Simulated assay, not measured.
Amino acid sequence: MARITIIETGHVPRKYRERHGSFPDMFARMVRAADPQSTFDIVSIPDGDALPDPRQVQAILITGAAAGVYDGLDWIAPLEEFVRTAHANRTPMVGVCFGHQLIAQALGGTVRKSDKGWGIGRHVYQVTPNNGVVAGEQLAVACSHQDQVIEAPGDARTILSSDFTPHAGLLYANGTTLSVQPHPEFDADFAHVCCELREGSAPDAVVATAKASLAEPLDSAKLGAAITRFLTRR
Score class of each variant (00 low, 15 high):
Pro13Thr: 11
Val69Gln: 00
Gly64Thr: 01
Phe230Pro: 02
Asp115His: 12
Ile6Thr: 04
Leu214Glu: 05
Arg122Val: 10
Ala67Ser: 14
Thr110Gln: 13
Glu216Phe: 07
Glu196Gln: 15
Lys15Glu: 15
Thr5Val: 13
Ile159Leu: 09
Ala221Leu: 12
Leu170Tyr: 05
Cys97His: 06
Gln105Ser: 15
Leu79Ile: 06
Thr85Asp: 10
Met93Asn: 08
Gln105Met: 14
Glu185Gly: 06
Phe82Cys: 00
Arg17Val: 15
Cys195Gln: 05
Gly224Cys: 12
Val12Leu: 08
Asp25Trp: 04
Phe186Trp: 13
Thr39Phe: 07
Ser179Glu: 06
Pro54Met: 07
Pro78Ile: 08
Ala33Ser: 15
Ser161Glu: 05
Asp47Gln: 14
Glu81Gln: 14
Cys97Gly: 06
Ser162Ala: 11
Asp47Pro: 04
Val207Leu: 09
Asn174His: 04
Tyr125Thr: 01
Ala225Val: 10
Gly154Met: 10
Phe164Ala: 13
Thr232Trp: 09
Leu139Pro: 01
Gly95Val: 03
Thr85Gln: 13
Ile120Phe: 08
Ser213Glu: 07
Pro92Thr: 02
Ser44Tyr: 07
Val124Ile: 14
Gln148Pro: 04
Asp47His: 11
Ala86His: 02
Gln58Ser: 15
Ile76Met: 07
Gly64Asn: 11
Ala142Met: 10
Pro184Glu: 00
Arg229Gln: 14
Gly64Arg: 00
Phe23Val: 03
Lys222His: 15
Ser179Thr: 15
Glu137Arg: 14
Ala135Trp: 03
Glu8Phe: 02
Ala226Val: 10
Thr85Tyr: 00
Gly224Trp: 10
Gly117Leu: 09
Asp204Leu: 10
Gly175Thr: 06
Ala221Ser: 12
Ile6Gln: 01
Asp47Glu: 15
Pro36Cys: 06
Arg122Ile: 11
Gly121Ile: 08
Ile120Trp: 05
Phe40Gly: 02
Val12Tyr: 02
Val149Ala: 03
Tyr172Thr: 03
Ala202Asp: 08
Asp35Cys: 13
Gly200Lys: 11
Ile42His: 12
Tyr16Arg: 02
Glu81Ile: 09
Arg233Asp: 10
Phe164His: 13
Arg198Ser: 15
Ser220Leu: 04
Pro52Leu: 08
Phe27Leu: 06
Lys211Glu: 13
Ile76Thr: 12
Val96Lys: 00
Gly117Val: 11
Asp49Gly: 11
Leu223Val: 11
Ile62Cys: 03
Ser44Lys: 07
Val83Ser: 00
Leu73Gly: 01
Ala173Ile: 06
Tyr125Val: 01
Val127Met: 03
Ala215Asn: 15
Asp49Thr: 10
Ser201His: 14
Gly108Asp: 10
Met1Tyr: 10
Lys211Ala: 12
Asp189Ile: 02
Gly95Arg: 02
Ile42Pro: 06
Gly136His: 09
His20Val: 02
Gln126Thr: 15
Gly154Phe: 08
His167Gln: 12
Lys15Tyr: 11
Gln181Ser: 07
